[in-house]
Amino acid sequence: MAKLYFRYGAMNSGKSTALLQAAFNYEERGQHVLLAKPEIDTKGADQISSRLGVERKVDFLIGPEDDARALFAEHRRRVQFEADAALVPDTRTDVACLLIDEAQFLVPDQIDDLLRIAVNDGIPVLAYGIRTDFQTRAFPGSARLMELAHSLEELKTICRCGSKALFNARLVGGRFVFDGDQVAIDELSADRVTYESMCARCYLRESGGRLR
């Protein structure tokens, strides 16, 4: 049975790089993949970009009201049609894997759709994202992935002090902030929103002991 995987980590833990590497590995073996990300992630528009400078256009964006399984089915049919029309011998004519970037921004119903794609449609789904927001609260999409995913894998990165980073601190204009909307896409705001991955000790030091 195909599985739903959630690969998560703090900011700058190489999630997008790992996704693009997974896509390359499938395609190197002659298999087809589909890449998607939530529409709310306006950074990079319709591109998935890694810190190493590698980028790739997604096959489709998922809006907050979209049926993720129906969108996948539509693009799966396209892949099957194009592969069959190419008449290339010994190539797989179906999608081998669906890869989702910034999965924390999906709504819980869309995470349910990802499970159905894996279990009912037989296509493995690799979802990459962060677990908690800048106030240490789980994103709804990440919380649902934690509940449903067959496999959970943490991608690790380090804090400024060298310890394992656990949290994602938000800075506005270079200053740490601990109040505000859950979603603020980095580097696209007029106030220059950025994030820093931090261990629990450094996060508590900057927040004055606050965790939410």
Rank of each mutant, 00 (worst) to 15 (best):
A23L: 00
V193Y: 01
L98G: 06
K37G: 11
S207A: 13
A143W: 03
P89L: 05
I48W: 03
A83G: 12
A149E: 10
L211W: 11
S49H: 08
K3N: 10
Y5M: 09
S142T: 00
V79D: 08
R69V: 12
R170I: 01
K164N: 02
A190K: 04
C97V: 15
N25H: 14
T194E: 04
A23H: 00
Y26C: 12
Q21L: 15
F60E: 10
F105M: 08
P38H: 07
L171W: 04
V33N: 04
E82W: 11
F81M: 10
R160E: 09
R205K: 13
G209L: 00
Q21S: 13
S197V: 01
A138I: 13
L20E: 03
Q80F: 12
T136A: 05
I100Y: 03
V95C: 07
E187H: 08
D112R: 06
E39C: 04
D121T: 04
E74F: 15
V33E: 08
V177D: 01
S189L: 08
V54C: 12
R69E: 14
I130F: 04
R192G: 01
V54I: 15
G129L: 02
L114V: 10
G209N: 02
I48N: 10
E206T: 03
T157L: 00
D113I: 00
V193E: 02
A200L: 08
Q104M: 14
R192E: 13
G174N: 08
E82Y: 10
I185Q: 05
A184I: 05
V125M: 07
Q110P: 00
A118L: 15
M198C: 07
I48Q: 06
R78F: 10
E102R: 11
L188V: 14
I111P: 01
R170C: 01
Y8F: 14
E154P: 09
Q104P: 13
L98P: 01
F81G: 01
Q21H: 06
T17P: 05
T194K: 06
T93Y: 07
L152R: 05
Y5N: 07
R170F: 01
D133T: 00
L19W: 15
L34H: 09
P89G: 06
V193M: 01
